[in-house]
């Protein structure tokens, strides 16, 4: 199949950037989206041009590094799928595809389709950890965790921090990401020591980074490759209120 690509090209963080059109010829429907870009890049290298910079790592949908907005959808619009697991069979021959980076003030573009997601790291540093006793590894199952809580915590822990929620949200809000991290740890006994301080600090860092607020549109949940539920945002709102009340009493 042959495709026309409109790709965002930007030399560096200060460059203004523009869309450049490329033709992707003889694309196999079995290629992943990133493999298709690899082929386009090989062609560009042969011609002596700069290849398109994009992020990728595991290429099996578990690391959260790939970050492409494809035709206006974060990760390309296929349910529960990262861009690296999106295959060219989802597109049709002759189609025009627009590829853009995540767009958010806290995610500045470094080059082409690569953005700096350091703001997520700083949110994690603000409270995404638990206190653990030192010493030998404890025996398994010494801390009882109820099955419903364990299931919910694991659902939240599926978040791979890719940032698609921010990219898809009309407000560039990071609420789904932050709420997944807050919920994951507040649901487990290991996370109780910092429970209140965690949510206050992580929300405060999220605000400082310049992410928008949640208006409950549900876009984040729809594009999330790990299907993190909007329910976690409600849980974080509750956790935040609880922490405020506790900090006053």
């Amino acid at each position: 199949m042959n495709l026309t690509l409109h790709v965002w090209r930007q030399e560096n963080a200060t460059d203004s950037g523009e869309f450049v059109t490329y033709l992707a010829k003889d694309v196999s429907p079995d290629m992943s989206f990133l493999e298709m870009l690899d082929v386009v890049n090989e062609d560009l290298l042969e011609k002596g041009a700069d290849p398109i910079a994009f992020d990728s790592d595991c290429r099996e949908g578990i690391c959260g590094t790939c970050s492409l907005v494809i035709n206006g959808s974060a990760h390309g619009g296929q349910k529960a799928t990262t861009a690296c697991q999106l295959h060219m069979r989802s597109f049709s021959d002759g189609e025009t595809i627009t590829i853009e980076p995540w767009r958010a003030r806290p995610f500045p573009v470094i080059r082409d389709l690569v953005v700096d997601r350091g703001s997520f790291d700083r949110i994690i540093q603000a409270g995404g950890y638990v206190s653990a006793s030192t010493g030998g590894a404890p025996d398994a199952n010494t801390i009882p965790v109820s099955k419903p809580n364990s299931d919910k915590a694991m659902d939240a822990a599926q978040c791979i921090g890719c940032g698609a929620c921010v990219a898809a949200c009309k407000n560039a809000s990071a609420m789904l990401f932050v709420s997944a991290k807050v919920s994951h740890m507040s649901l487990l006994p290991q996370g109780q020591v910092e429970r209140e301080q965690r949510v206050l600090d992580m929300v405060s860092q999220m605000d400082q980074e310049g992410f928008g607020a949640c208006t409950v549109t549900g876009s984040c949940e729809a594009v999330c490759p790990k299907e993190i539920s909007l329910d976690f945002i409600a849980r974080m709102n509750r956790e935040y209120g609880r922490a405020l009340i506790k900090s006053c009493s």
């Binding site: 409109h6 965002w8 869309f19 907005v69 035709n71 206006g72 959808s73 974060a74 619009g77 627009t98 853009e100 767009r103 958010a104 003030r105 806290p106 898809a168 009309k170 407000n171 560039a172 809000s173 310049g210 992410f211 928008g212 607020a213 208006t215 549109t217 549900g218 876009s219 949940e221 729809a222 594009v223």
Partner: peptide, 21 residues
Amino acid sequence: LSAKNRAARPVTYKVNRSVAA
């Protein structure tokens, strides 16, 4: 809040598709 939300995305998308909203 609306002002903060707008400031959070200074460069908008070329293709705007509102998913699920």
